[in-house]
Simulated scan of single mutants.
Amino acid sequence: MQLYNKLSAKERAALLDEAGEDRLTLSFYQYAKIGNPDLFRNHLFITWDQMEVLGRIYVAHEGINAQLSLPAKRFDEFKNFLDGIWFLENVRLNIAIEHDVKSFLKLKVKVRDKILADGLNDATFDVTNKGVHVDAEKFNKLLEDPNTVLVDMRNHYESEIGHFQGAVTPDVDTFRDSLSIIEEDLKDHKEDKNLVMYCTGGIRCEKASAYYKHKGFKNVFQLEGGIIEYARQVQNLNLENKFVGKNFVFDHRRGERISEDVISSCHQCGKPCDTHVNCANEACHLLFIQCGECSEKMNECCSNNCRDIAALPYEEQKALRKGKGNSNKIFKKGRSEVLTYKR
């Protein structure tokens, strides 16, 4: 019985091209008590592999977090499968604004300690005691209230290319870093301010809102469905769009345009740009922002050194990587010292 992906990304990409079918990109999450995450993981993989689902899915005792794509023609089959699982019936599905048949190239279903790493070890913290969910219209009204503090619960490289007007955008690398920083910054306003949070699809706010309620904040709100659902409601209901720029997404697209504003700059030359790329040197793979001119000049690399390595024959590149772990540049996400403009 096949329980793991057996095709390479290149092989899968060729099959997708050959199929020529429309695919939907979507995400969902749900906090729930799962007794046997390993068994549940295998059940998901076997079923979704047969449905030609591709994506990145995390399962833990606390629930499920999924980003995936599937053939558009199999959406009803997929939805019926979810509705047959007691804690996933009618779960919110955040369907992407922009689709790409190659948004995911492998099916990876992994068991983790948590579906969202938070660094918390507090047994009295109840993740289900969450804040008030608000839709796009109520969210916009809250932003007009002078007693509202709007906080972006995403990381620096996400908010760099797009965020809501007037939002606090913490300069953090991980979700776990943001929790204590925001609590400290707002500790004097636990009762007199509306704490309103947003993230990509809602999962980070779901946990953060429960955390801040646990810490004594009285008026806690979160944008239901995150930026993805907000953009859809703004378009369908003809509401004012208060988001500027792109919404960073965790698949091969790397971003969905929400407004025409370009609020960030190329990390190499400083020109307006909001296109994230990975360095073409596989030993580096740094995520950074690069404009078309710099991409051509640098051969899709972050530095002259990486450009020289990427120009070598593949076997020579492999020899250079042999015995070495991935460069920790891979985790810096736009902060590397080789990015001259950023420095």
Rank of each mutant, 00 (worst) to 15 (best):
N5T: 10
S8D: 13
A9D: 09
A9E: 14
E11C: 01
R12L: 09
R12K: 10
R12T: 15
R12A: 13
A14L: 11
L15K: 10
E21A: 12
D22M: 11
K33M: 05
G35H: 02
G35E: 09
N36Q: 11
P37C: 15
D38P: 01
L39P: 05
F40T: 09
M51G: 02
E52D: 15
V53M: 13
G55H: 15
R56H: 12
I57D: 03
I64K: 13
N65C: 05
A66T: 15
L68P: 11
K73A: 11
F75K: 13
D83V: 15
F87I: 06
L88W: 15
N90W: 07
L93R: 05
A96I: 01
H99C: 06
D100S: 14
K102E: 15
S103Y: 13
K110G: 06
K110V: 13
R112M: 13
D113A: 10
L116H: 05
T124V: 12
T124A: 15
D126A: 08
K130I: 04
G131T: 09
G131S: 10
D135S: 06
F139K: 03
F139P: 03
L143D: 12
L143T: 10
D145R: 10
P146F: 03
N147M: 06
V149E: 13
V149K: 06
L150Y: 02
V151T: 03
D152N: 07
R154P: 00
E158G: 00
Q165S: 07
P170D: 12
D173Y: 01
T174P: 00
F175C: 01
S178R: 03
S178I: 01
L179R: 04
E183H: 06
D185L: 13
L186V: 00
L186A: 03
L186C: 02
H189Q: 11
K193I: 00
L195C: 05
V196P: 04
I203L: 08
I203E: 04
Y212I: 00
Y212G: 00
K215Y: 06
K215F: 08
F217M: 05
K218E: 15
F221D: 09
G225Y: 05
E229Q: 04
V234C: 05
Q235D: 01
L239E: 08
N241H: 04
V244N: 06
N247H: 06
V249H: 04
D251R: 14
R254T: 09
E256R: 02
R257P: 00
P272Q: 12
C279L: 05
A280R: 10
E282H: 11
H285L: 13
H285P: 00
Q290S: 04
C291A: 06
G292I: 01
K297V: 07
E300I: 08
C306Y: 10
A311V: 06
A319S: 07
F331T: 03
K332N: 10
K332L: 15
K333R: 14
G334W: 07
Y341Q: 10
K342C: 11
K342W: 02
